[in-house]
Design a protein around this nucleic acid. Sequence first.
DNA 1: TTTCCGCTTGTGGATCACCACAATGGCCGA
DNA 2: TCGGCCATTGTGGTGATCCACAAGCGGAAA
Lengths: 200, 200
Amino acid sequence: MNTGVVYIVDDDEAIRDALGWLFQSRGVNAECFVSAEDFLAAWTIGSSGCLVLDIRMEGMTGLELFDRLCEMGAKLPVIFLTGHGDVPMAVSALKKGARDFVEKPFNDNDLVDKVIEALAWEAERMASDADAASLAQRLGNLTLRERQVMEKVLAGKLNKVIADDLGITMRTVEVHRAHLFEKMGVKTAVELAQLLSQRR
Amino acid sequence: MNTGVVYIVDDDEAIRDALGWLFQSRGVNAECFVSAEDFLAAWTIGSSGCLVLDIRMEGMTGLELFDRLCEMGAKLPVIFLTGHGDVPMAVSALKKGARDFVEKPFNDNDLVDKVIEALAWEAERMASDADAASLAQRLGNLTLRERQVMEKVLAGKLNKVIADDLGITMRTVEVHRAHLFEKMGVKTAVELAQLLSQRR
DNA sequence: TTTCCGCTTGTGGATCACCACAATGGCCGA
DNA sequence: TCGGCCATTGTGGTGATCCACAAGCGGAAA
């Protein structure tokens, strides 16, 4: 069950059709675009999927589209297709985070395998992104004081010390502490530490 | 101050000499090797540095050496040099974890910059590897009981509950807890959680 | 102006964590 | 066999945490 979509961007209709067919036959939903501009217009950041991108196209090239997506903060996996690639181009693309760089003619099955793998990876990334976003959201709901208290809790300080540092009473620290635990959805300081340490 | 070393492996004496000179002039210690075999013989796993590796060599090729190093668990950064590289070769090398893939003729300064960057990266990696090793070592020094108690502490359980789970007294749990905190070098459960969460 | 929210503090009690002092029994290597 | 390490438990006390019940103050929004 692949819920992921592969976006095919190539100005050669024959290749678009062939690839579209190929992916559909393997159960991967495909969407084709004639140009980089078309894809940019249709694509909204945050949407999932894998991009199969021809490099040499009229108008915006695949590499330019990739750069543009990177600037936009897109993180979807990109597999380049090219008939006229050179080594520096491939190296540069991969070092910028492209997932693969395939020369034409390519092996159909290998390409599909790569896309399926990329889609699985993408699904994981989306999930962990969602987690991170949820975490950030909860953090955003904290009050200034609650954040301050949280930092000191994570530093392993006792309520007494935190109270001293912030110039307030222990009782007040307890209140903030309880509030932030509730907002962050944890019951103990240990859980909180794990929540904020794991990522990164 | 670069304490790192760049290992140059190339069967062309002119290039070895030129690169050796080039790196020394920029303050980077260089060691040259005539062949992949020579390097393998001299190399001991765990030693730091950056590898600049020619691909086409008599005997073992650069790519073969790289594969061998990967199998051995070596993680040092590898920068390939080649005059006859093709795209699939470059893509494959980078996907296997090579740091860069440079075609001859190359720009001297760029190469040195890349090596210096790689050495800095390598230094960080070594440091975090050392941390991980130290952590693993401390974990290894824990008793079975101590590890069991640790798990439950990390699960946020109270001593009372832990005692119940393990079928022992609260007092005993307290003892194990104190011991493992000491062995792990932490003073609070929060520190412990951070220690064991940060590194994946 | 009234209301809501955040920040603040107090009291007191039930738990819990931490530690020093003390002790028993088992296993293993010197 | 003796010493050391490990696991186990007890007692008693100090300090911390957690929480319910209560309440005052100030700013911002309605």
